[in-house]
């Protein structure tokens, strides 16, 4: 059953709490990009994906697939997987601890339901998505392949190999979202490398490009629906998703500095106060 806008908003707040609590607990992890993508993950996993989260099937035959390429935003991914039923929400408490299935970066190695590929070393997810897309086409499976990449990640050359391949081979069942938060570890992406003209870059490779405000629940819902409708038209689809890194936690916004550091006790309290519990903490 589709969630209402109000229900989605509640879930986003809970996911923000999950993210800051997870990285605070182990004093490690990546809160900034995770917080920026909370709306995207919530809408995608709650309302868009046609998937079986109860009986996880690695091959995803006749299911939509999601591939996370920028694996460091694992906190938001794990929260979305847990809250959509792949594994108990209480397991979020094991994030990055010894013997956990919730490794620092996502992996299939520990058998966590919902994860189909390891990611962390950047630039590989779109290629994996292209492989799943080709398999679906071979099998006459009309479900979709979603992939999320970071904007800094576009600096990896492999991405553009895959961008070229997907367009040349008309992989119109791929919906690739780029998290355009404009930040990376060393600073603002515009100062570091290649941030300009993302739309025309993808269009020049013959992709269908649309944009959305990734921190507006309704826009995310509408645009993901629209992307689904654009599929099957001979071109892969790129969504340029504008987000604010650290969104929803005031002191983490407007800076690249919270890419990969955890909050201290006081900062955690402030972050949680800004995002009151809605459906209950894990």
């Amino acid at each position: 059953m589709k969630k209402t806008s109000a229900e989605l908003t509640n879930q986003v707040k809970q996911t923000r709490r999950d993210i800051v609590r997870m990285v605070h607990e182990v004093q490690s992890g990546h809160p900034g990009g995770s917080l920026g993508c909370a709306e995207f993950f919530t809408v995608l996993f709650q309302n868009i994906l046609r998937h079986n989260s109860v009986e996880f099937n690695m091959s995803a035959n006749n299911e939509d697939v999601f591939i996370l390429s920028n694996g460091h935003i694992s906190p938001v991914y794990y929260s979305a997987l847990a809250h959509s039923g792949y594994f108990p929400v209480s397991e979020l408490n094991t994030f990055r601890k010894l013997n956990t299935r919730l490794q620092g970066h996502p992996t299939t190695h520990e058998g966590l339901p919902g994860v189909r590929i390891a990611s962390g070393s950047l630039g590989q997810g779109l290629s994996v998505a292209a492989g799943i897309s080709q398999a679906k086409k071979l099998d006459d499976d009309n479900k979709l392949v979603y992939v999320l990449m970071g904007d800094g990640e576009l600096q990896e050359g492999q991405i553009w190999e895959a961008v070229m391949y997907a367009a040349h081979n008309k992989l119109d069942n791929i919906i690739a979202t780029v998290d355009v938060n404009g930040r990376q570890i060393d600073g603002d992406t515009k100062d570091i490398m290649g941030f300009t003209e993302l739309k025309s870059k993808f269009e020049a490779f013959n992709w269908n490009v649309i944009s959305m405000d990734g921190n507006d629940i309704d826009d995310v819902q509408e645009t993901l629906n629209k992307a689904g409708m654009l599929s099957g038209n001979g071109k892969p689809i790129c969504i340029l998703m504008q987000t604010e890194m650290g969104n929803g936690v005031d002191f983490m916004m407007g800076s690249h500095k919270w890419h990969g550091i955890p909050p201290n006790d006081e900062q955690l309290a402030s972050a949680l106060a800004q995002n009151p519990s809605t459906i209950g903490d894990y």
């Binding site: 995803a60 035959n61 994996v128 492989g131 080709q134 190999e161 391949y165």
Partner: peptide, 18 residues
């Protein structure tokens, strides 16, 4: 094409799908 990195990733994707 001359894009081996993409080939390895794509092979992983094809294998994922069986």
């Amino acid at each position: 094409g001359i894009a081996e990195a993409n080939m390895m990733g794509m092979a992983a994707g094809l294998a994922t799908a069986g």
